[in-house]
């Protein structure tokens, strides 16, 4: 079935974004591993890592303009016009709120409250960069708020859907990462928040790979929810 040009463009953007995200994140993890800094994920010395990831997201969001140039020049103007100053300010406010919310939620899930501020802060910063930042860059601040509140039921176009799925994957990875923390193996990677941070990164990669696979496997129904398998992941 032939897709209309807008859909095709959107699909292309999603594929390229996802490929970029997964490759970029995988490279970052390898870099961390080879510089032996992987155990410092929870310390402030890893701020460059966060900056690197944020830069990656920035590049990704700008890449779509290249694609838009080819396919629908008019769209570009619309997009550019939308990015005015107040929007940016709003986006920054949303990001900061997200950091605070992630911090609170992490504490509610059992992160230490009176100690380990640095670790929890770095973890929430990482989660914000992986979830709220791409959403803000691609969809704008308002959509981000709605998206985060209605995480499981938000419905939008292909790009929104892909971002929603990558957020879900990231959060699920972080959640699953916490499993190894109570084990009494005394390994350096069991310390909060290393497994959760790594889990979120791996969840991010996995969800992006998943999105790519879906884009290639089924043509048009890819993002129509409820029709996918038993559990509609």
């Amino acid at each position: 079935m032939a897709l209309n040009p807008t859909d095709r463009r959107a699909r292309k953007i999603v594929i390229i974004n996802s490929i970029w995200s997964s490759v970029y994140m995988a490279l970052t993890i390898f870099a961390l591993h080879y510089t032996k800094k992987i155990y410092d994920v929870g310390k402030c010395t890893c701020l460059p890592l966060i900056a690197l990831l944020a830069l990656g997201e920035g590049i990704k969001s700008n890449m779509q303009h290249l694609i838009i140039d080819h396919l629908a020049p008019r769209e570009r103007h619309a997009r550019v016009r939308k990015f005015n100053f107040s929007n940016k300010l709003k986006g920054i406010a949303v990001l900061f709120t997200t950091i605070v919310i992630y911090y609170v939620v992490a504490v509610l899930f059992g992160a230490p409250f009176l100690s380990g501020h640095e670790e929890t802060f770095m973890f929430s910063l990482l989660l914000t960069v992986l979830t709220a930042l791409p959403s803000c860059l691609h969809l704008g601040a308002d959509t981000t708020i709605s998206l985060l509140i209605e995480l499981t039921s938000f419905e939008g176009d292909i790009i929104t859907e892909s971002i929603r799925q990558s957020i879900c994957g990231t959060l699920f990875g972080a959640w699953l990462g916490a499993i190894v923390i109570p084990l009494d193996w005394d390994r350096p990677w069991q310390v909060w928040p290393i497994p959760c941070s790594l889990g979120s990164m791996i969840g991010y990669i996995c969800s992006n790979i998943f999105i790519i696979m879906r884009c290639f496997s089924k043509s048009e129904k890819i993002f129509a929810r409820k029709s996918l398998g038993k559990y509609g992941l």
């Binding site: 308002d142 959509t143 709605s146 509140i149 419905e155 939008g156």
Partner: peptide, 12 residues
Amino acid sequence: KLTLSNFRQKLS
């Protein structure tokens, strides 16, 4: 059916 089109009016 909260969608992209109406999210601005109805923040949930």
